[in-house]
Design a protein around this nucleic acid. Structure first.
Lengths: 147, 147
DNA sequence: TCGGGATTTGACACCCAATAGCAACCTATT
DNA sequence: AATAGGTTGCTATTGGGTGTCAAATCCCGA
């Protein structure tokens, strides 16, 4: 257990934070890598992973474990929910207020110490909804949301 | 897109379903592999993965993407939520009724076609709560739930 | 009961997101 | 400017999960 660890602001860390904020989206580590590499071509993917982790610890950004494919990183660390397209994987914010009551409710009913919760919606983004409606692609079968 | 595919009930598939039901828990593919191997020592891990997938498609069990480490499989395919210990990784059912209203609420506010949602609680199981209380281990730092 | 085509198995190679190890380098502080 | 130790880039590695394919198995119809 190390004592308080100091962090330095390197050009790499600075650019990673800048690019993820500029994107205003939910990019993967690899997407961040591609964005930053345009301005710092010799940066390595490992450095991106390390700094994303540190920026999470500092509370500047947030890591999203949506339980699919790969992790994403959110420029906005404030508590909010997400919705993910089952067809193309796109991720957007879900405009729903945080549910405070469910944790209270569960607190009555469980022997766990509750610390938090994750709520992830799954569906079809506008573009993929359109494709399904026009018959261009098949809709995901029921249950896909939990597979 | 193949026409309706027939499935056979092999000894492997039968035992996998039997063991996961007997466990009444949320084992990983590897844990299922270890359980089944006691009765069928020559079964391969690939067979376990393939059959767990097929049993999900058949609606006999359910795959859980809790967004951490590895996927788990639930003997009970009925819709319910889960809670996961941030310290030891144990997973249990969360005794909370399914939230129907949130999807309706979101439907009003988004351009997505909503298909489903996942709600995952995070906290400390009784054993790990005890360890924290006695000072044996450190509590997870805030934000750990989303990292 | 038997035959035969489709499904399934076991073994092994492979994929890929993410992490570990390490010497050289850089940042911040004195 | 000198120093301490956090940081980088590189490379190798991990580990859950998937793909391939010949051999084995299942099941349905004759």
């Amino acid at each position: 257990m190390p004592k308080h660890q100091t962090h330095r602001m390197t050009r790499q860390r600075e650019l990673i934070l800048e690019e993820i904020r500029r994107s205003k989206a939910h990019p993967s580590a690899d997407e961040v890598y591609l964005m930053v590499r345009k301005r710092l071509p010799r940066i390595s993917l490992g450095t991106v992973y390390r700094n994303l982790e540190i920026l999470c610890e500092l509370g500047e950004i947030r890591k999203l474990d949506l339980g699919v494919d790969f992790k994403r990183y959110d420029w906005d660390p404030k508590m909010h929910y997400h919705i993910r397209c089952l067809e193309c994987g796109q991720v957007d914010n879900a405009p729903i207020a945080p549910l405070h009551s469910v944790e209270d409710e569960l607190h009555q009913a469980t022997v766990y110490t509750i610390i938090g919760h994750k709520l992830i919606f799954e569906g079809l983004c506008p573009a993929c909804s359109q494709k399904v409606a026009s018959g261009e692609i098949q809709p995901p079968d029921q249950g896909a949301a939990d597979r």
